[in-house]
Amino acid sequence: MSAAKRINSPIDRRRFLKDSARGLAGCAVAGMGLAWLISDARALPAEALRPPGALPEDDFLAACIRCGLCVRDCPYDTLKLAELGEDGPATGTPFFTARDVPCEMCDDIPCVAACPTGALDKGLTNIDDARMGTAVLVDEEHCLNALGLRCDVCYRVCPVIDEAITLELQHNPRSGHHAIFMPTVHADACTGCGKCEKSCVLPEAAIKVLPARLARAEAAEHYRLGWEEKEKAGGPLVEGITDLPDRLPGPGTDNLETPGGFEPAFKVPGARP
């Protein structure tokens, strides 16, 4: 064939360059459209929770092939695949809504076992380590326990009772002589299964499972809590520190109540006087 001649022909070279330019331009336009659509679909609504062991959302959308095998192996029909235009998450990806059907926290975690790609991480072997979200008592003005009544339902249904949710006793300032049993979530033990939200007796739940990004703050990396550091070190962090006199009202001032001054309430241990 005349392949060599064809390549050298300026007409063909020009056509090749033109076609390439057209192809690239078309791809750029279509690709921008697709990327815009993807960025739109990536916003996971707060009430949509991913199955246990799900990778962080950005990694999840690279890994989940939307086959629905986790949905099929979920014995409680908790999981479903998102439907276009009706559910919030990216079309075809698995999620659950705690208020509809919460996660029952199966010991054998069948959804994770069913996932062929690792979008649900097989590293999760103890369901208590799952972090699908974090429960938050979002409305203390309506929570019955917070009002001083004894509902306790969220506390009672919690699969990690007394660790993820405890009832903390507080004074009830309204009546003046009763206690408030305040449901208190401890995020380090909460799996985000959603049973508390599901069982809240109010028409709209006062306790809700939110994705960690909404539910939790993050301490700045350089923050150190002095009392914790001291406990870790087993003593003062700086030896031989001089405890300077506290600036308290004392002799020579116009303090008439305690002319001798106050003893400091707290003495730095190991400090020279």
Binding site: L34, L37, A41, L61, R66, G68, L84, D87, T91, G92
Partner: peptide, 23 residues
């Protein structure tokens, strides 16, 4: 960083829709 075509793929949309729910 996503499986891009699955956001629009009409094959998946139809097939998954018939099996899992169409929306």
């Amino acid at each position: 960083g996503t499986i891009a075509w699955e956001f629009v793929n009409p094959i998946s949309m139809l097939h998954r829709g018939l099996i899992f729910g169409m929306g």
